[in-house]
Simulated scan of single mutants.
Amino acid sequence: MTMQTIKSSTQDQNPPSSPGDQHSGIRNYRLTAVCLGLLTVLLLIIITALSIHYSCPQGWIKFSSSCYYISNDRKTWNESRQNCREREADLVIINNKEKQMFISKFHNFWIGLTDSNKEGNWKWVDGTTLITGYWIDGQPDNEDNEDCVVTYGQKNPEATWNDLTCSCTAHWLCEKPASR
């Protein structure tokens, strides 16, 4: 091998740095940083949009995937239901233990359960039949033609329901999906 060949192979393996090479490296870093910054901003916009989309209206409480309105005043069961409908909601439907545990904190509130169409045939406001009830011992008793259900505070959060005459007044709980 000649000296010329050794010299040219060494130059190819270690090319000299020129100011132009350094500037292109800096440009690549800046381009990468700008792209990462834009992606971060895009992700923040998406997260914000999703959190707004799945939030509850002002004055409502979010629990699980629903929003709940807790009234301050008292109305009959029918008036309470109408108030919920005006809010694009309905009286709360308690169809699982998790929701019952949440609702059990509220005392003297109407829920969306009635047997006003047929005595003893308890139906939710969406037309579904009651499967699991969280009745206080001895309830429902239909004393004085009680066709609507109210929650009462009890030591046992799994036993808070009482049937009550629908014309009585109580607070009420409205429920609607959080995604509305």
Score class of each variant (00 low, 15 high):
residue 148 C to T: 02
residue 8 S to R: 15
residue 7 K to I: 14
residue 16 P to W: 10
residue 20 G to A: 15
residue 116 S to T: 08
residue 136 I to L: 08
residue 174 C to Y: 03
residue 9 S to E: 11
residue 64 S to R: 06
residue 89 A to G: 07
residue 107 H to D: 15
residue 72 N to Y: 10
residue 116 S to W: 01
residue 149 V to L: 04
residue 16 P to N: 15
residue 70 I to G: 09
residue 67 C to W: 03
residue 141 D to I: 02
residue 53 H to G: 11
residue 26 I to N: 07
residue 18 S to D: 11
residue 101 M to G: 05
residue 165 T to E: 14
residue 171 H to I: 06
residue 175 E to Y: 04
residue 129 T to G: 13
residue 97 K to P: 14
residue 173 L to D: 04
residue 101 M to T: 12
residue 136 I to G: 05
residue 173 L to I: 10
residue 131 I to E: 15
residue 21 D to Y: 15
residue 114 T to V: 07
residue 164 L to P: 09
residue 173 L to A: 04
residue 15 P to R: 12
residue 101 M to V: 09
residue 75 K to C: 02
residue 10 T to M: 09
residue 25 G to P: 04
residue 22 Q to H: 04
residue 140 P to M: 10
residue 94 I to M: 14
residue 8 S to G: 13
residue 149 V to S: 05
residue 86 E to T: 13
residue 147 D to I: 01
residue 170 A to P: 05
residue 121 N to E: 10
residue 37 G to V: 01
residue 176 K to P: 01
residue 153 G to P: 06
residue 53 H to T: 04
residue 137 D to A: 01
residue 102 F to W: 13
residue 6 I to S: 11
residue 12 D to M: 01
residue 123 K to Q: 14
residue 64 S to D: 12
residue 106 F to Y: 12
residue 11 Q to I: 09
residue 152 Y to M: 11
residue 82 Q to H: 10
residue 40 T to I: 07
residue 61 I to L: 14
residue 163 D to M: 04
residue 29 Y to W: 15
residue 174 C to M: 12
residue 85 R to W: 07
residue 74 R to F: 09
residue 60 W to H: 03
residue 151 T to M: 08
residue 123 K to N: 14
residue 14 N to V: 09
residue 52 I to A: 10
residue 55 S to R: 08
residue 60 W to G: 06
residue 43 L to G: 08
residue 91 L to T: 02
residue 142 N to T: 03
residue 73 D to K: 06
residue 169 T to Q: 09
residue 147 D to C: 07
residue 26 I to A: 12
residue 22 Q to Y: 07
residue 126 D to S: 02
residue 94 I to Y: 05
residue 4 Q to V: 07
residue 5 T to W: 13
residue 41 V to R: 04
residue 44 L to S: 00
residue 88 E to T: 10
residue 175 E to G: 08
residue 83 N to R: 13
residue 103 I to F: 08
residue 35 C to N: 12
residue 95 N to W: 12
residue 48 T to V: 13
residue 89 A to L: 06
residue 53 H to P: 09
residue 178 A to C: 13
residue 96 N to C: 02
residue 137 D to L: 03
residue 152 Y to F: 10
residue 50 L to E: 15
residue 61 I to P: 10
residue 37 G to E: 01
residue 140 P to H: 01
residue 128 T to D: 14
residue 140 P to Y: 01
residue 114 T to K: 06
residue 50 L to F: 04
residue 61 I to E: 15
residue 136 I to A: 09
residue 125 V to Q: 05
residue 60 W to L: 02
residue 81 R to G: 11
residue 154 Q to L: 11
residue 154 Q to G: 14
residue 27 R to C: 03
residue 127 G to N: 06
residue 21 D to C: 12
residue 26 I to S: 08
residue 30 R to S: 04
residue 149 V to F: 00
residue 35 C to L: 15
residue 116 S to F: 02
residue 2 T to H: 08
residue 131 I to F: 04
residue 77 W to P: 06
residue 9 S to G: 00
residue 55 S to W: 00
residue 120 G to T: 10
residue 154 Q to H: 13
residue 142 N to M: 06
residue 81 R to E: 13
residue 125 V to D: 06
residue 34 V to R: 14
residue 81 R to I: 07
residue 154 Q to W: 05
residue 47 I to Y: 11
residue 133 G to A: 03
residue 151 T to R: 00
residue 157 P to R: 11
